[in-house]
C-alpha cells in the first residue's frame, strides 16, 4: 500500500528539518507577540545596549527595548514578506504568462519582451527602483519584490501552458466546446500547479532576503517597527558596543531562509521523478 504523499515527502531529511523550523517560526509569529514578557516598543534607557542577561534573554537595544520581543514580532513581517511577495509574483505571472502561453503570437512576443526588459535589471536593483517610486514603508519591499518576481513566474507559466496547450486532454475539452477560460482554469492551471508550487517555495527564500535588504537600506519598515532588516540597519552604529544587535536579527533571517530553502529543495526533488526515491 502506498503511503500518503505528505508522509513520503517528510521522509526526506531536508523536508523534515525545513518543515519543523518553518512550523516553529509560524507558531512564534502567530502566538509569540501575545506571550512575550515585554512590549517590543517599550523603552527603558536605563538598560540600553545590554547584552543577554537573566531578565532580557537576548539583551536590549539602543532604547532599552527587549530584543527577544522585537525579534518575535519581527518574524511576522519576514514570513509575511515571503508569502505576500511570492503571492504577488505568482498572481502577476499567471496574468501575463497564461495568455502568452495559451494564445502565443503577438501577445506572447509582447509579454516575453516585457519580461526580458524587467529581467534586464540586475537582482535587487529593480526592487530598489520600485521602492523609490512607492516611498519607504512596511509593505513597500513586499510589493517591490512581488513586482520584480512577476517576469520569473510569467516565463514559467508560459512554458507550462505552451507545453500543455496541445495535449490530448486539452484537445478533448476544446472539441467538446469548452471555452478558453474553462480550458485555462479547469485544465491547464491544475496541471501546471506542481512546478509553480516548487518555484514559489524556491523563490520565497530570496524574497525574504531581498525584502530584508531593502529594509536594511532604509526603504522598508521605519522605526520603531521591529522588522529584522530594519533592526540590523538601526544596529550598525552600535556595532562595537553591542554586537548582539547585529548578530541576532541576521541569524533570525538566515535560519528562516534556510528553512524555506530546505523545503524548496525537498519539494523540487520530490516533484522530479528521477530524484523522488
Amino acid at each position: 500500500m502506498r503511503r500518503p504523499c505528505s508522509r513520503r515527502f517528510f521522509k526526506n531529511p531536508s523536508a523534515l528539518v525545513g518543515g519543523i523550523i518553518l512550523g516553529f517560526l509560524v507558531i512564534v509569529s502567530v502566538v509569540g507577540p501575545a506571550v512575550v514578557p515585554y512590549s517590543p516598543y517599550k523603552q527603558d534607557t536605563s538598560i540600553k545596549l545590554r547584552g543577554p542577561y537573566a531578565e532580557h534573554w537576548l539583551g536590549t537595544d539602543e532604547f532599552g527595548r527587549d530584543v527577544l520581543s522585537r525579534l518575535v514580532l519581527g518574524s511576522r513581517y519576514s514570513l509575511s514578506a515571503g508569502f505576500v511577495s511570492v503571492g504577488m509574483g505568482l498572481a502577476g505571472g499567471l496574468l501575463l504568462g497564461a495568455p502568452a502561453g495559451y494564445y502565443g503570437g503577438l501577445i506572447d512576443q509582447m509579454v516575453m519582451l516585457l519580461c526580458d526588459i524587467l529581467l534586464a535589471f540586475p537582482g535587487v536593483l529593480l526592487s530598489l527602483a520600485i521602492t523609490m517610486a512607492l516611498g519607504p514603508g512596511i509593505y513597500t519591499p513586499m510589493v517591490a519584490v512581488g513586482i520584480s518576481s512577476i517576469p520569473v513566474f510569467a516565463r514559467l507559466v508560459r512554458a507550462q501552458f505552451l507545453s500543455l496547450r496541445n495535449a490530448q486532454f486539452v484537445e478533448a475539452a476544446r472539441s467538446q466546446g469548452a471555452s478558453d477560460a474553462r480550458i485555462v482554469f479547469k485544465h491547464l492551471l491544475p496541471n501546471s500547479i506542481g512546478p509553480l508550487v516548487v518555484q514559489s517555495t524556491l523563490r520565497m527564500g530570496s524574497a525574504i532576503l531581498t525584502t530584508a535588504t531593502l529594509s536594511f537600506l532604509g526603504q522598508g519598515a521605519q522605526p520603531p517597527e521591529p522588522e529584522w532588516g530594519a533592526m540590523l540597519n538601526m544596529a550598525v552604529p552600535y556595532f562595537w558596543t553591542a554586537p548582539h544587535l547585529v548578530i541576532l536579527p541576521g541569524l533570525a533571517i538566515t535560519i528562516t531562509v534556510i528553512a524555506v530553502n530546505l523545503l524548496g529543495d525537498a519539494l523540487r526533488d520530490f516533484a522530479d521523478p528521477r530524484t523522488r526515491e
Binding site: 527564500g205 532576503l209 530584508a212 535588504t213 536594511f216 532588516g229 540590523l232 550598525v236 556595532f239 562595537w240 554586537p243 547585529v246 548578530i247 541576521g250 533571517i253 538566515t254 531562509v257 534556510i258 530553502n261
Partner: peptide, 22 residues
C-alpha cells in the same frame, strides 16, 4: 554552500568586519 545562499550578504559583511577588523 547552502548557508552561503541563505545568508543576507550585508549581514555576512558585518560579521566579517566584526571578526577581522574589530
Amino acid at each position: 554552500a547552502f548557508l552561503g545562499v541563505s545568508m543576507p550578504s550585508f549581514w555576512l559583511g558585518l560579521l566579517l568586519i566584526l571578526l577581522f577588523s574589530v
